[in-house]
Nucleic acid binder design. Structure first.
Length: 289
DNA sequence: ATGCCTGAAGGGTTCAGA
């Protein structure tokens, strides 16, 4: 079974990239973030295109901002929109949707950005993460939390740790919240597979950051033990960040062995690992206002 | 000068993103 997660930064704008990508990579389950579409608009925009490809859809969106979804062609049951008891800003935002697909509980999440440490937005982010932790703790072991965590788990996950000191995405409380989530038994399957590689999932659109490989790894696939032990491949699809009209995030793709009870999905070999070197030149970061 | 790109809303510009 092939699982993918992708922050598409507007489904409407990304349609010319999403559909060919679905046909090329043929994921069985796709977790999307930043769809920026209300559910009716989602269905109208790509309901037909997705059902033609065999996908069922669990969308949880709103106009303008946020929005998450799960696409599955291996079953889609017990859909839950939002997180129980999660804070809003001030109203609940469309940042989590869960569904069961071929025996795996999937949660597609778009964690609040946080903006500036100690701001209201930052406290909202930490409170939201606490709700996510509680939801995962109440869920099954065969769970995968996928999505844009808006946290770089370690200094190795940003292109220049010194430039990020004091910035959101790398602060201790954020990393501690992520560690709490992982302490429930979730494995960061991409880092586990590539412990010493330079691996990013997000590159700012500006200043040629992608082409210099100056990015961050903030989109994660966190798998419970029964799923993590089935991982056969876990990689970032950088190809999807190239060319015309890309999202600023690349998809993360994870292939699982068939489940013990015999779920069989397509098996496609991953591309060879990129020969990136560690390090990179320093670039001045955009400063908060 | 510096939010350098991109998307969205709404209005002739501003905010948000990480």
């Amino acid at each position: 079974m092939r699982i993918a997660t992708w922050n598409v930064n507007s489904l409407k704008q990304r349609l010319p990239r999403l559909l060919p990508w679905l046909d090329q990579r043929r994921p069985d389950v796709v977790c999307l973030q930043e769809t920026k579409l209300a559910d009716e608009a989602f269905a109208e925009l790509l309901g037909d295109e997705l059902s033609r490809r065999g996908y069922e859809v669990a969308a949880y969106g709103e106009a303008t901002w946020n929005g998450v979804a799960i696409l599955s062609r291996v079953g889609l049951d017990d859909v839950v929109r939002g997180l129980d008891g999660a804070p809003g800003f001030p109203k609940p935002e469309a940042r989590a949707v869960a569904a069961s697909c071929a025996g795996v509980r999937l949660v597609s999440v778009y964690v609040p950005n946080g903006r500036v440490p100690d701001s209201e937005h930052y406290r909202y982010k930490l409170a939201w993460l606490a709700s996510l932790r509680d939801a995962v703790a109440a869920g099954p072991e065969a769970i995968v939390v996928c999505g844009d965590m808006n946290i770089a788990p370690a200094d190795e996950d940003v292109f220049d740790p010194e430039a990020y000191i004091g910035q959101t995405h790398v602060t201790s409380p954020e990393r501690a919240a992520l560690a709490e989530l992982q302490a429930l038994g979730l494995h960061d399957v991409v880092r586990d597979r590539w412990p010493n590689e330079r691996v990013f999932t997000y590159w700012d659109y500006r200043a040629g950051m992608f082409h210099q490989d100056l990015g961050m790894r903030i989109d994660l696939v966190l798998a419970g033990a029964p799923v993590a032990e089935r991982v056969r491949a876990a990689w970032v699809d950088r190809h999807a960040r190239k060319g015309t009209g890309p999202s600023d995030h690349a998809p993360v793709i994870v292939d699982l062995d068939e489940a013990p009870d015999g779920d069989i999905g397509p098996v496609v070999p991953p591309p060879s690992a990129p020969a990136h070197r560690r390090g990179g030149k320093k670039v001045k970061l955009p400063q908060a206002p």
